[in-house]
């Protein structure tokens, strides 16, 4: 088994684990964690495919894509955590129109 294949499979498994976590866990924080694991799995897959062996240079384009992916994923997670935080301060009230104030 080659290094690329091993890490690709690991990435793929992480992806599936993340999805399962998303489906079977209901807490919001846990969902955010699961999404991050899913994302990590995809990134691992991409980077493993970019790896060309001990002596060869890796493909830098996927690295760039993953860097973008990490930053976007972190942004989305941060927004999610913030929204969870706001949700804690707002208790359910009846607001029929769904409009502000």
């Amino acid at each position: 088994m080659t290094v690329a294949l091993l890490y690709s499979i690991t990435g793929f498994l992480l992806f599936l684990m993340g999805i399962c976590g998303l489906i079977f866990r209901s807490s919001l924080i846990r969902r955010a964690l699961a999404l991050n694991i899913t994302a990590s799995g995809i990134f691992l897959f991409i980077v493993a495919q970019a790896y060309k062996g001990e002596s060869a240079l890796p493909d830098p384009v996927p690295h760039g894509l993953v860097l973008t992916g990490i930053v976007i994923g972190a942004s989305a997670t941060a927004l999610m955590i913030y929204l969870i935080g706001v949700l804690r301060y707002v208790s359910p009230g009846d607001n029929d129109s769904g409009e502000e104030e």
């Binding site: 290094v3 990134f43 790896y51 993953v66 860097l67 972190a74």
Partner: peptide
């Protein structure tokens, strides 16, 4: 780092 992507390693450690 193992997969020759040290830039990502830094970003992941600091950000992720």
């Amino acid at each position: 780092t193992r997969l020759d992507a040290p830039d990502l390693a830094l970003a992941e450690a600091a950000l992720g």
